[in-house]
Amino acid sequence: MTLVLVEIDAGGVIEVSRETLTFARSLGDLVDAVVVGDLGDAARDQLASYGVRTVHHATGEAFDAYAGAAWAAAVQAGLRASGATHLLAAGTPRGMEVLAHVAAREDVPMAANVLSAEGSDPIVVTRQVVGGAALEEMRLAQSPTVLTVAGHAVEPRPADAPGAADVVDLAVDVSEADLVARVVSTEEPEPDLSGGLRSARVVVGAGRGAGSADGFGELLELTELLDASLGVSRVVTSLGWRPHHEQVGQTGSRISPDLYIPCGISGAIQHWAGCSSAKNILAINTDPDAPMVTKATYAVIGDLHEVVPAINAEIRRRRAG
């Protein structure tokens, strides 16, 4: 039995959790889910379509505000109820945190950002390290095996045969200590902060090639024309040219747009870790050998300050026509 900690938002089961359910089925065992907090009919139906047998559902006062340790207690109750020997979550901040709590409490290892798993005794996983620039093969010899699945390691795919997704309420023993580190308030994010960047369909990227804090005019114009979000490399935020919430990379946002247009970005590992999930990349760079150019789908060789205004003009010309 494999148990998956599933995260749910207003739109139902989040994409990376659906990817994780797909990954879980590939391990060959039956799949149960554990959900903490609101579930909803739409999410339950999605879980059924992804082949989930039983949904272990934790609700109650202890889960009204997020506490990593309390969620871990719920997941542990799910482990006992399901008899699962594998525990998975998506490699989101919540998924990483809650499974790290569970691994510490169960005194077993945890593998973060797993791409694939092979064998059964022990399972050997391959996971991303150094921001995805290297891989590590890691043995998970103890039960339960605890791992988080890297974003976009697999395509989310419903099961051939849907599961029953019977919802069973979990009895969770949450101690006072589990609630000490608990969210006491949540403020709505400002509309332009990184949430929009992470879910944007098109992202225009800017790196050192922008030249200065004043060098973003034409890039912002292209962003506007394409109804896109602006993402920048670390050097841009380090130099104070743009705010940190626009940073794409290992220590910024990880994006997965249909199209990413990195302009004047060489494509160092730190940045690539955040944009490698883009479906198409159209790089604009003066250096034809820059990693970003060689890894791109399309490229223009040239200075962004010449190329981008010409693109903006061409878009306006076609729209006027």
Binding site: P109, V124, V129, G132, A133, A134, L135, E136, E137, M138, R139, L140, A141, L282, A283, P288, V293, T294, K295, A296, T297, Y298, A299, V300, I301, G302, D303, E306, V307, P309, A310, I311, A313, E314
Partner: peptide
């Protein structure tokens, strides 16, 4: 660390399509 070994991901073959040089590529 339960590590078997580290390895480098195989370099993705570059199949970039160059659209042109400078403003003429717009």
């Amino acid at each position: 660390p339960d590590r078997v070994r580290l390895l480098l991901p195989p370099p993705a073959p570059s199949d970039v399509q160059i659209l042109g040089k400078g403003a003429d590529a717009a």
